[in-house]
Structures are given as structure tokens and as C-alpha cells.
């Protein structure tokens, strides 16, 4: 399917099948993630092609919405409502009776950790509390598909951990969960299945390790910060993975390595054996941008 906005292509000839489990929809800002999510959630139509959810077109289709939960990226609410009233209102709009709606709202507010604070007006909520409320309204009708558009934005580390636990629990129950994000490390902890968009085009889809392994055929850049760079450098040269090495002026050691996955345990062993002092170890290649660069350049 494709989607144009006037002369701008939002999504360009994307074809995919997404099944149960967690799928990460990855891409930089403007990659087409939100456009794709809006099409899946039936807010907009594809310009060409078709999108099917449970064999039905989702646009303005209540049959689809009954089985689909959506946590939008926007931060807008009915500010005068309390969190509880908002979630109950969403439950009523989902077709539940009053008691059932109250019941479900209560349960969901517990799940997202908002039970104690849900009776205050949304206007006074922090970003993290708003995210939780959005998540609660997305899950309250026990949907088979849940779409989460940048759900980790604004959540503190504890909130992120709790959120990930909730999502993982849902996935274990066989739900199809699609999470959009532009931060690979965040979603890496949740899933291995990714859907990579770049400038509206599908760059890669499938298992993260498979895609990573493609990157591993190219040297990974790794930077080690240490007070004893020369000693570290000489020890690193003993490893087969290291292809090149450079000592920079700040005292850090820059390496190019192959098979990064086997390199990291080997470094750990070296550190323990030789009691090396390491302040930091980071790979600028381990971010989404590098994956893009590799895939776009390929």
C-alpha cells in the first residue's frame, strides 16, 4: 500500500504481514510510522493498495475497532476529566454498560499503575501519567491488536520498566502488539521482530538478530574509555575480532571489530583477567541510525 499527502509520499509501496507477538515499528521522525499506524487504525485510507485486519478494511469500521486498541502519540485529552472518568468514558464508547465500564476502567488503571492518582483532573497530570492513561484506554476492551505510537515518550525509567512488563504480559497472552519508536535500544528489550521504515519505504522486516547479523558482516565501531589506553589497546589486539585500532587524543581506544556479538564477551573476559580499568564502552553502530545507514547504503 502507498499513501500520498498531496505531492508528499507518506508511505511508499509497503507490503507486509504482521502476526501475533510484539512487532517494533521503527524509523526516524518522518519515516512514515504514524501514517502507517493511522492506516491500520482506520483513521486514514491508503491511496493505493489495501490494508486488511481480520479480513476487513479498517477505515471507519467498528468491527475492526472492537478488536483493536490504540494508544496515540498525541498528548491531548479532555483535560477537565479525571483519569478515571476518561477511561470509563472510553469504555462506554467501546460499547460496555456502566458497571462493566467502571469495572474495566478500575482494572486497567491498576494495571498501568494509576489507581492512586486517577481521581485527579488530567490537566494536572505529568507526561508519564498521561502516557499511562492512554495505555489504559487502549487496553480496556481487551483487544486482539494493540497499537502503541511512541508509548515510551515521557516515561521515567521505572515507568518504562513497568510499561514493558505490561506489554510483555500482553504478548504472552497472544496479542498482536505493534509499538512504534525511533529508539532501537528501547524496543530491543521487548522484541526481536522489527519493521523498519525510512522515508516512507520499508527497509527491513523480520527478526532483529537476522538483520543485525547482516550488519555484523561489516566492521562495528566500538569506543573504549580508559585511563590506561595503551595497555588496553595492546590487549585488544590479541582478539581475533579486532580489525583496526586507533588511540585518540582523549585517551580513548577506537576499534573496528567483526562479529560484535562474540567480541563483547571476549572483552569482558579480558577485563576480568587483567583487571583493566574501563570507564565506558559504547558502540556508535548499535543505534538505529547506523542500521539505516547500512541498509540505505547497501
Amino acid at each position: 500500500m502507498s499513501r500520498w499527502f498531496g505531492l508528499v509520499i507518506g508511505l511508499n509501496d509497503v507490503s507486509a504481514h504482521i502476526g501475533p507477538g510484539i512487532t517494533a515499528l521503527l524509523g526516524q521522525n518522518g519515516a512514515g510510522k504514524t501514517t502507517m499506524i493511522r492506516m491500520i487504525t482506520g483513521q486514514i485510507r491508503p491511496t493505493t493498495g489495501r490494508i486488511k485486519i481480520f479480513d476487513e478494511e479498517p477505515f471507519a469500521n467498528p468491527n475492526v475497532f472492537r478488536r483493536l486498541g490504540y494508544c496515540p502519540e498525541i498528548d491531548q485529552f479532555y483535560e477537565w476529566m479525571t483519569g478515571r472518568v476518561f477511561v470509563e468514558h472510553m469504555a462506554r464508547l467501546s460499547g460496555f454498560g456502566k458497571e462493566e465500564a467502571q469495572d474495566r476502567a478500575q482494572r486497567m488503571l491498576q494495571v498501568v499503575g494509576m489507581e492512586a492518582r486517577c481521581d485527579k483532573k488530567i490537566a494536572g497530570y505529568s507526561k508519564g501519567m498521561r502516557q499511562r492513561i492512554k495505555l489504559a484506554q487502549a487496553m480496556l476492551h481487551d483487544p486482539s491488536i494493540i497499537l502503541l505510537d511512541e508509548p515510551l515518550n515521557g516515561l521515567d525509567p521505572v515507568g518504562r520498566h513497568e510499561f514493558m512488563q505490561v506489554v510483555a504480559g500482553l504478548a504472552e497472552r497472544g496479542k498482536c502488539i505493534i509499538i512504534s519508536s525511533h529508539i532501537l535500544s528501547e524496543v530491543e528489550q521487548l522484541t526481536q521482530s522489527i519493521f523498519l521504515l525510512h522515508r516512507g519505504r520499508l527497509l527491513a522486516t523480520g527478526d532483529l538478530t537476522t538483520i543485525r547479523s547482516l550488519i555484523d558482516k561489516h566492521p562495528h565501531r566500538i569506543r573504549i574509555e580508559t585511563p590506561e589506553p595503551q595497555r588496553v589497546a595492546s590487549l585488544m589486539l590479541t582478539l581475533d575480532n579486532v580489525l583496526s585500532l586507533d588511540l585518540d587524543r582523549d585517551g580513548a581506544v577506537d576499534l573496528e571489530v567483526k562479529n560484535a556479538e562474540s567480541f563483547y564477551p571476549a572483552v569482558a573476559d579480558l577485563v576480568l583477567q587483567h583487571d583493566l580499568k574501563i570507564y565506558g564502552l559504547a558502540s556508535p553502530d548499535n543505534n538505529l541510525e547506523s542500521v539505516f545507514q547500512y541498509l540505505v547504503g547497501a
Binding site: 482506520g42 467498528p62 475497532f65 498525541i74 464508547l93 460499547g95 484506554q137
Partner: peptide, 15 residues
């Protein structure tokens, strides 16, 4: 304009 339309049009209710 408030952007809350998204909550209404993604609920199982005929437009």
C-alpha cells in the same frame, strides 16, 4: 482542533 478526535473515531461506533 483539540486533537481529541482520535479517541472518538477509533472506537467501535458507527460514525
Amino acid at each position: 482542533e483539540q486533537k481529541t478526535i482520535v479517541y472518538l473515531v477509533t472506537r467501535p461506533i458507527l460514525r
